[in-house]
Design a protein around this nucleic acid. Structure first.
Length: 602
RNA sequence: GGUCCUGUGGAGCAGUUGGAGUGCUCGCCGCCCUGUCAAGGCGGAGGUCGCGGGUUCAAGUCCCGUCAGGACCGCCA
């Protein structure tokens, strides 16, 4: 090593020893006759003092990479810096070697200055010299280690699966890779290792996990990148409760070690239908109340067309209360209409209860009968001074989701969110199917998800109500993981495919290899995958997963650092076989009554 | 694909009813400075106000288009 000590580790006890440090000039304070330099390495910062005979130190600039030898000394009385772990000492330099110089910086390496995303990402290596971004990446490493420890303690096997594979039946668009050796054919990058982990269960591995990179070619969000990471887990001979117990063990370990939070176990469970009814979301944020109230029955018979239309159509009318919302200005209340329209709703009906008299006011109030108005406050749990927002739709879920979004917005605007709180829950008993919009059904989770025992023999009778052994774990309104018990019985799988309109031929074409494997004694199995970027984002206290990814992309899929993606050369294009047409499949030998072509082998 | 926000020396910002590239903090260059710790003082350099078009006597400012970054909707089992 070209250094003897870590800069951040020096303490008063080291006084008197000669040390050699290597690191970067974090800051310099040049007084002419004496120069102070904060020397930073991965461990932290120590103050180095250069005296008159060390004139070369005048030439140091921020982020020069240097090696310094000197004596550790206690700082003169009164000059200690209690803000720094190394604040009691300083290094009196006797030699200075500039290992490399730094050009003027395109962004300040300073924890107090936050640059724009494009500059930060273009110079991510400089961005990561800052304490907070660096800490997030280091924290993620710890999270990986903690998860591995929990899983290894439980005899899990870490197994890597291919990233050049064939398309698997998740719903997202695939990233495709042309295949030079077979022009016209393409690999897909995996959207998840779903099928491989099920094959590993067939193979008798029994307990698999992987920190797996996954790829989905969809639009980005603050919590979505085109390549992302899952902590992917699958287990044999288990029930839903076993997977949930394991998930809780992992979450408790992570939050216990990295967030100093004791996660209450068992983590509360809520059914998917209750979550929608009470919170208008399948990933409810339980850090605050503000629950939804269904008013379909209460308002039955109303003459207000918006509500009556939904009720007559067999739909839903509901409300959510904004505590203190009656004090909003007309402009603020109008703002809610814009908010709702931005979400694709027609508007957001509201009634405010006068803070003094409790009288219901607002545009909707005059459309409701005196009887409906009189009992409204009690029906929705509103007090004088509150505002009540309504949503109505023929589709129950549509109205609930609007109210759920309003609930979140209310909590934000009314300051009801405790930013220091952690609220976990499992959302269980998810529906198996949802309408595909064309008269058929599509799998809510994926087509290998098992119906619950209650529904396994009759899910065809009411696909809209059939429930699955599918579960999501939610933290502060973020879905941080989800999984299911899988189907291991061929007859059940066939019936699910039938309902989904997947023909045996189509099934064989898409994932025949899995069905083939399931002929040979597949064990009952199930699993879970954690959205690892989101988990780390929450643990890091960040508001974007970009903060916990070393080299993230911008929302356009662009990497400002490398400039990827780029066009390819004509030669690359020709070699990759991007433009090749796939050969028609050769008939099997003998099936056409003609000799099959035989290729020369070497 | 849609809605919204942002774009001003290297970084972060301010810029009023349209009136001279105006200002602030940091950084950069030079000089001074022996106890600072986001050191301080003096001086200096650095600009296609993202880009293109329009309105106007006059545009950083208003309008249209476009590019880039961000938030959301659609999409993402």
């Amino acid at each position: 090593m070209i250094r003897t000590h870590a800069a951040g580790a020096l303490r008063a006890a080291d006084a008197g020893s000669t040390v050699t440090l290597a690191g970067w000039v974090a800051r310099r304070r040049d007084h002419g006759g004496v120069i102070f330099v904060d020397l930073r390495d991965a461990s932290g910062v120590s103050q180095v003092v250069f005296r008159e005979e060390m004139a070369a130190a005048h030439a140091l600039r921020n982020e020069f990479c240097v090696r310094v030898t000197g004596t550790v000394e206690g700082r003169p009385a009164g000059n200690e810096n209690p803000e720094l772990p190394t604040g009691e000492i300083e290094v009196n330099a006797s030699s200075l070697e500039v290992l490399s110089e730094a050009a003027p910086l395109p962004l300040p390496v300073d924890d107090n200055v936050d640059a724009g995303d494009d500059v930060r990402l273009r110079y991510r290596y400089l961005d990561l010299r800052r304490a907070t971004p660096a800490a997030s990446i280091r924290m993620r490493s710890q999270a990986n280690q903690l998860a591995r420890r929990v899983l290894h303690d439980r005899d899990f096997v870490e197994i890597e699966t291919p990233t050049l594979t064939r398309s698997t039946p998740e719903g997202a668009r695939d990233f495709l890779v042309p295949v030079r050796l077979q022009p016209g054919t393409w690999y897909a990058l995996p959207q998840s290792p779903q099928l491989f982990k099920q094959l590993l269960m067939v193979s008798g591995m029994e307990r698999y996990y992987q920190i797996a990179r996954c790829y989905r070619d969809e639009d980005f969000r603050a919590d979505r990148q085109p390549e992302f990471t899952q902590l992917d887990i699958e287990m044999s001979f288990i029930t839903q409760d076993d997977v949930i117990e394991l998930g809780e063990a992992i979450v408790a370990e992570l939050w216990g070690e990295l967030a100093e939070t004791e996660v209450p176990r068992p983590i509360p469970r809520i059914t998917w239908h209750d979550a929608m009814a009470r919170y208008g979301s399948d990933k409810p944020d339980l850090r605050y109340g503000v629950e939804l109230t269904e008013l379909t029955d209460y308002l039955r018979g109303t003459e207000f067309r918006v509500f009556a239309g939904a009720i007559d159509a067999g739909g839903y009318v509901g409300a959510v209360v904004m505590p203190g919302g009656a004090s909003q200005t007309r402009k603020e209340l109008d703002g809610w209409q814009d908010w709702a329209k931005a979400r694709g709703a027609r508007g957001l009906a509201y009634v405010v209860l006068d803070a003094e008299t409790g009288e219901a006011r607002g545009p909707v109030a005059k459309n409701l009968s005196a009887a409906h108005l009189a009992g409204l406050g009690d029906a929705v749990g509103a007090k004088p001074g509150d505002a009540i927002f309504f949503a109505a739709a023929a589709e129950r879920r549509e109205a609930q989701e609007l109210l759920g979004a309003a609930r979140q917005e209310i909590a934000k605007r009314a300051g009801l969110i405790d930013e220091n709180a952690w609220a976990f829950c499992w959302v269980v008993d998810a529906p198996m199917f949802e309408p595909d919009g064309e008269g058929g059904w599509t799998a809510v989770h994926h087509p290998f998800t098992s119906p619950t025992d209650e529904w396994v023999d009759r899910f065809e009778q009411a696909p809209d109500r059939a429930l699955a052994y599918a579960y999501d774990i939610v933290c502060n309104g973020n879905e941080i993981g989800g999984g299911s018990v899988r189907i291991h019985r061929a007859d059940v799988q066939r019936r699910v495919f039938d309902l989904l309109g997947i023909s045996p031929e189509e099934a064989a074409d898409k994932f025949g290899f899995l069905l083939e494997a399931f002929k040979y004694g597949p064990p009952p199995h199930g699993g879970i995958a954690f959205g690892w970027d989101r988990v780390c984002m929450l643990l890091a206290g960040a508001d974007s997963i970009r903060e916990v990814i070393a080299f993230p992309k911008t929302r356009g899929g662009f990497d400002p650092l490398t400039g990827a993606p780029t066009p390819i050369t004509a030669q690359q294009r020709a070699e990759a076989g991007v433009d090749a047409k796939p050969k028609p499949p050769a008939p099997a030998a003998g099936t056409t009554g003609e000799a099959a072509p035989v290729e020369m082998t070497r």
